[in-house]
């Protein structure tokens, strides 16, 4: 256990010691505040909102700032494995008394942390700016809804971060990982009305649609989507893990 926490600490430091680490969180905060300001100024129906909680619930999911959380988290974590190869530090990492499996898992856990951190930053930026614009406060039920939408936003981002993480492990290329990760987020909006499509990752990624537009394809539910997402993520992690463990490091 101590071994694992120290590996996680290492991975976290590798991300945060980079000077460029602060760019995505800062961008997210600025975008959050900026979007709030624009909506408050120019959108009539948003400006009439009476509390920050309603605004937060509407903005935290994938149709709001959640999209940016996903994109920036993809960019922030895509290089976690590929960079080790690019810098040559992979050898430094793998000739220690730690298994490759442990190293892979510690990296993935940090990718999850990063995504969670970005979700929280988005929430904080929206809360502060939204509170100033629409007034702070809100009922318990509203806060529960905020949590739910926040969780949906987090799941949405995490699905694509996991996909990107796998691509990074398979290709050892940060560029390819970011490219595929970002491109795949764009498929979420596309729905092919065929039975098989509900088993595809993309229409399942955004869980918030069930509360707004209804199921993308008839017969889909939140529970169904969660199972599909869990299966895909398990597949991505297993594929990345297997390749990372077996590969000859030249």
């Amino acid at each position: 256990m101590r071994n694992m926490t120290r590996l996680i600490q290492n991975e976290w430091l590798k991300l945060t010691k980079k000077r460029s680490f602060w760019i995505p969180p800062l961008m997210l905060a600025v975008i959050g505040a900026g979007v709030t300001f624009m909506l408050y100024k120019f959108s009539t129906n948003v400006a009439e909102m009476d509390s920050v909680t309603v605004y937060l619930a509407g903005m935290l999911n994938a149709s709001g700032l959640g999209q940016f959380v996903a994109i920036l988290s993809i960019i922030g974590t895509a290089g976690m494995i590929a960079q080790e190869y690019a810098q040559g530090t992979i050898k430094f990492l793998l000739i220690r008394s730690r298994s490759r499996g442990q190293i892979f898992v510690s990296k993935y856990i940090v990718a999850v942390f990063y995504t969670l951190m970005m979700t929280l930053i988005a929430g904080a930026a929206l809360y502060v700016s939204g509170g100033i614009a629409f007034g702070f406060g809100g009922t318990a039920a509203e806060w529960l809804n905020v949590l739910q939408q926040g969780a949906y936003g987090f799941v949405y981002a995490l699905v694509y971060v996991t996909l990107t993480f796998m691509v990074g492990a398979l290709t050892r290329s940060t560029g390819v990982a970011i490219g595929i990760g970002l491109a795949s987020t764009m498929f979420s909006g596309i729905v092919i009305f065929r039975e098989f499509y509900k088993y595809v990752l993309f229409p399942n990624a955004d869980l918030s649609v069930y509360g707004t537009m209804g199921p993308p394809i008839p017969g889909m539910t939140v529970g169904f989507s969660l199972i599909v997402l869990a299966a895909y993520m398990a597949l991505f992690i297993a594929a990345g893990y297997t390749v990372f463990r077996r590969r000859d490091v030249a």
């Binding site: 120290r6 590996l7 290492n10 430091l13 000077r19 810098q87 040559g88 530090t89 430094f92 008394s97």
Partner: peptide, 18 residues
């Protein structure tokens, strides 16, 4: 090869934590 953006000490700490 080391993490170029970290100090020598931080790199040694990385190794020590493993």
């Amino acid at each position: 090869e080391f993490y170029p953006y970290m100090s020598g000490y931080d790199n040694l700490k990385q190794a020590a934590r493993m």
